[in-house]
Simulated assay, not measured.
Amino acid sequence: MTSADLLLHPVRLRIVRAFLGDRALTTSALAAELADVPAASLYRHVARLVDAGVLHVVAERRVRGALERTYVLRQAAAAIAPDELTTMSPDEHRRAFMVFVAGLLGDLDRYLARGAVDPIRDGASYRMAGLWLDDAEFAELLRELTRVLQPALAKPPAPGRKRRLLATVLLPSDEAPTTGVRKSKRRSS
């Protein structure tokens, strides 16, 4: 099974996402977060992720005669390798993107179902921007984003911290630059 096949299953993707942010979870804690996933299915998918090295057991303890394991995510194993990305067909990329977007929609649905949502207070947003960058400028942007995000990604869970999910999509546009530069018009009051 390729890493894309492993990771792009909707339930396994939700499991991986639950561990983002340097979290250590037991299967019972995971089951509480993914309450809509049947227990047998959840355990089966966790086992597949462990077998593939995506999840790693960091602790075990006996609870009422059963062995309870605590897992963490192995970030390097939780991504589709660049060489595999380059061999994926357009349909496989489309499927991967649809699973990714479906995961985001699921996260949004769960956020909205909490009731009394306030995107400003909660820091929830979604935006799109168009950037005109040559390859060197684009590479610099990616380096800067990494530099800015790295310290935040390294912060462990702690009292007072909320886990926040950051999703990015970078797509080239087929739009060619126009010869003239448009200037924005400002209205005066």
Rank of each mutant, 00 (worst) to 15 (best):
T2H: 05
T2N: 07
S3Q: 08
S3I: 03
S3W: 00
S3V: 06
A4H: 03
A4W: 02
A4K: 04
D5G: 03
L7M: 01
L7Y: 02
L7W: 02
L7V: 04
L8V: 00
L8D: 01
H9V: 01
V11A: 08
V11S: 03
L13M: 11
R14Q: 08
V16Q: 05
V16P: 01
R17K: 11
R17N: 10
R17V: 05
L20Q: 15
L20A: 13
L20G: 12
G21P: 14
G21V: 14
D22I: 06
R23I: 09
R23Q: 14
L25K: 01
L25D: 06
T26Q: 03
T26L: 03
T27G: 13
A29R: 11
L30Q: 05
L30K: 07
A31C: 03
A31N: 05
A32W: 00
E33R: 09
E33Q: 12
A35F: 02
A35T: 01
A35D: 10
D36I: 02
D36N: 01
D36A: 14
V37C: 04
V37A: 05
P38H: 04
P38Q: 01
P38V: 06
P38E: 08
P38L: 02
A39C: 08
L42V: 06
L42Q: 08
Y43M: 13
Y43N: 15
R44I: 11
H45D: 15
H45W: 02
V46E: 09
V46A: 09
V46I: 11
V50Y: 10
V50M: 09
A52L: 08
A52Q: 03
A52F: 02
G53R: 03
G53I: 12
G53T: 08
G53D: 13
V54H: 02
L55V: 09
H56M: 06
H56I: 10
V58Q: 04
V58S: 08
A59V: 09
E60M: 11
E60C: 13
R61F: 07
R61M: 11
R62Q: 10
G65I: 03
G65K: 07
A66N: 06
A66P: 01
L67F: 00
E68G: 05
E68M: 10
R69C: 12
R69M: 06
V72D: 01
A76W: 00
A77C: 00
A77Y: 00
A77G: 00
A77K: 02
A78P: 00
A79R: 08
A79V: 10
A79H: 03
P82V: 10
D83Q: 04
E84M: 03
L85S: 04
T86G: 04
T87K: 11
M88K: 07
M88C: 05
S89N: 09
S89T: 15
P90I: 03
E92L: 04
E92F: 06
E92V: 04
R94L: 13
R95H: 13
R95M: 09
A96R: 14
F97C: 10
F97V: 14
M98R: 12
M98D: 15
V99W: 07
A102Y: 05
A102H: 07
G103P: 06
L104P: 08
L105H: 10
L105W: 10
L105N: 14
L105V: 15
L105Q: 15
L105G: 12
G106L: 09
G106R: 13
G106E: 12
D107H: 15
L108Q: 15
D109T: 14
D109Y: 14
R110Q: 13
Y111K: 14
Y111R: 13
L112G: 12
L112M: 15
A113H: 07
